[in-house]
Design a protein around this nucleic acid. Structure first.
Lengths: 168, 168
DNA sequence: TACACACCCTGTAGTGGCTACAGGGTCAAG
DNA sequence: CTTGACCCTGTAGCCACTACAGGGTGTGTA
């Protein structure tokens, strides 16, 4: 099986497969005389495993850890549970912030109904008013009137996210 | 006002302010004899605007466009509405995928209750079984038993996301 | 035999929105 | 005269890819 066939079989981009190999998620495959990678069914399975985990939005580093558990079945599985719990908590936190965001954007969107000039646009007015520190439609219900200089540490949180891939 | 004070006043990290400037979101401020940036109330307001938009998870490129509308109030506001609609759609799509994800992870988590070895761990079993193409607890309700090689284009979608900052 | 075309290789750079240094300068207080 | 807080520029890192440049290989057809 060459890389293109593996790609076809799994629906994973060729470049992504090479990227996984470089990241240590897939073992280095054998090479033909021409230098081409040669894969077997074990590789396919492992790639599917990785992909399924990615569909659950599990970060590559965690997938690596899960793969170690697969390789060492005698280990205690407590860490697996914790890993999934962490992932679940991450997703739940994001879910909640998305819900809040949706409400806020809907409130903002409700400020402008028809075509005006930007000067008369309720949305722009809201955004500018918010910048003045005035109460805004989108954030009024957050219970936070004004909290200046409370951040600085707030931005420290980095919760990057890539939309999960559909299950393979 | 020096950059540190602006940072304090808005809760935005100093490095982030400089980053916004480099990205063209903030105008280049005047400089003192020592090369230090000097800001006025207009900068503060503009930074607050940017931050409020970021709290709504609006990408920097779109914020730039909104700022142009602020500068040109005679323009038609239709684009503003479309911009917010797009943003709302983006958030809603993500919201939905987060909801699905949460269900999936919960189903997966339910597979392991106590402490076993990894060999007996229901979670790991599920993940491995899924890699085999068998039906799994997490993805069974998606209505998709097996769709191999349907992807390839699926991974093309890149829906990056940074968790929105709390409203300033 | 000549060529086109599909596939493969490596390596590097780009995405977004920051964050974190390294390596230096400036300024006020003690 | 030193300490420390602040400021400067520039570069590299994060994540999970994606995209390309610049080359080699293998197969089918004219």
């Amino acid at each position: 099986m060459r890389i293109g066939e593996l790609s076809q079989a799994t629906g994973v981009d060729v470049e992504t497969i090479r990227y996984y190999e470089k990241s240590g998620l897939l073992p280095e495959p054998a090479r033909g005389g021409n230098g081409y990678r040669t894969y077997g069914p074990a590789h396919l399975e492992r790639l599917s495993f990785v992909r399924h985990c990615r569909a659950l939005d599990i970060p590559l580093a965690d997938i690596k850890r899960l793969l170690e558990f697969v390789a060492h079945p005698e280990a205690d599985c407590g860490d697996i549970n914790r890993l999934i719990d962490t992932q679940l908590a991450r997703v739940q936190a994001r879910l909640q912030s998305m819900q809040v965001l949706e409400r806020q954007l809907r409130a903002l969107r409700g400020q402008c109904d028809a075509h005006h000039t930007a000067r008369e646009c309720g949305i722009l007015h809201e955004l500018v008013a918010a910048a003045h520190g005035e109460a805004c439609a989108c954030h009024q219900e957050a219970g936070a009137g004004e909290r200046p200089a409370e951040g600085a540490g707030t931005a420290k949180r980095r919760a990057k996210h890539v939309k999960p891939i559909e299950p393979a």
